[in-house]
Design a protein around this nucleic acid. Structure first.
Length: 281
DNA sequence: ATGGGGGCCTGCCGGC
DNA sequence: TGCCGGCAGGCCCCCA
């Protein structure tokens, strides 16, 4: 579910209850997420103070005063929920334990942070902070799409010669890190590029449209609080609103907002692509 | 090396 | 009402 904007809004929701605060008690209800959790994870988290909460691509990184960093990936259905009393604010999204509450961080402030993930495609791991960017899940990621390293020259070089459709190339986290199915579909619509176009056939003009369009769609989604599909909620239980602004994603057969042609769905590398066959060439 | 498909796991929705 | 197939925001791994 969560793509870069949803992870970023989750991070922003967690900031006030995590950063500077001590984990009084960490507990693990299910250690078998996408990979087994470190067997001593709860022990290594308990008593630690969170120094910073960062985001790299779709990963949350909580730096601890133990010189370790907690990596969190939400997979398809993962959520971080806050409940309890903290810093004068009562959070009530999630007062009672639910099915699929796999990891709970009870903070000294009284806040409770719960990782809930029905499908268990999510993941957590601990790694020395000094080496966290060498973690196998992070080491080979492409640049942040909102960062300076992502520009026209870079993207053109990475698309050069590739025989894969542009849709698949933009989903490849090694090319650019953080886009998922929704925001790739929206970006290709905004840039009027057909999703089947091979990466190697993308013109310089199209590259020049893609870079700012990717940035814009991500920024707008973050400002809207992300997208709430199938129950995705922010940490405080609030819904994101960007889904109302999807122009093509999940809108098969609805009229294109530009030309009224019915939005089409096709499957590329096993994933649905929504597009306007008239506008996108 | 690169691209495509399978698989991981649970829940929901539509059709019969 | 109940069952079944299809689908879902991600991503690693294996095979050709």
């Amino acid at each position: 579910m969560p793509e870069l904007p949803e992870v970023e809004t989750t991070r922003q929701g967690l900031l006030p209850v995590m950063v500077g605060q001590v984990i009084r008690q960490a507990s693990v209800n299910r250690p078998d997420l996408r990979w087994p959790l470190p067997p001593d994870m709860a022990t290594r988290l308990t008593g630690a103070r969170v120094l910073a909460l960062r985001r790299r691509s779709k990963y949350l990184l909580a730096d601890l005063d133990t010189a370790e960093t907690l990596l969190i990936h939400l997979g398809m259905s993962g959520r971080m929920l806050i409940s309890g009393q903290a810093l004068g604010v009562f959070h009530h999204d999630h007062p009672a334990p639910l099915k699929h509450d796999h990891v709970v961080l009870q903070m000294e402030t009284g806040a409770r942070i719960t990782f809930n993930d029905a499908r268990r495609f999510g993941a957590m791991d601990l790694m020395a902070t000094a080496k966290v960017d060498q973690h196998p899940l992070l080491a080979r990621l492409g640049p942040e799409p909102l960062g300076n390293a992502f520009d026209e020259a870079y993207l053109a070089a990475r698309l050069h010669g590739r025989a894969t459709p542009i849709k698949s190339a933009l989903l490849d986290q090694h090319i650019v890190a953080g886009l998922g199915n929704i925001y790739v579909c929206e970006t290709l619509f905004r840039t009027a590029i057909a999703p089947q176009t091979l990466a190697r056939a993308i013109t310089p003009d199209q590259v020049a449209r893609l870079v700012p369009a990717i940035r814009a769609v991500l920024r707008e989604a973050i400002e809207s609080g992300g997208s709430s599909l199938r129950d995705f909620r922010q940490t405080d239980g609030a819904l994101g609103y960007f889904q109302h602004r999807f122009q093509v994603y999940d809108r098969e057969a609805e009229p294109c907002p530009v030309c009224q042609t019915p939005i089409a769905r096709l499957v590329q590398s096993g994933r649905s692509t929504f597009h306007c066959p008239t506008c996108q060439r």
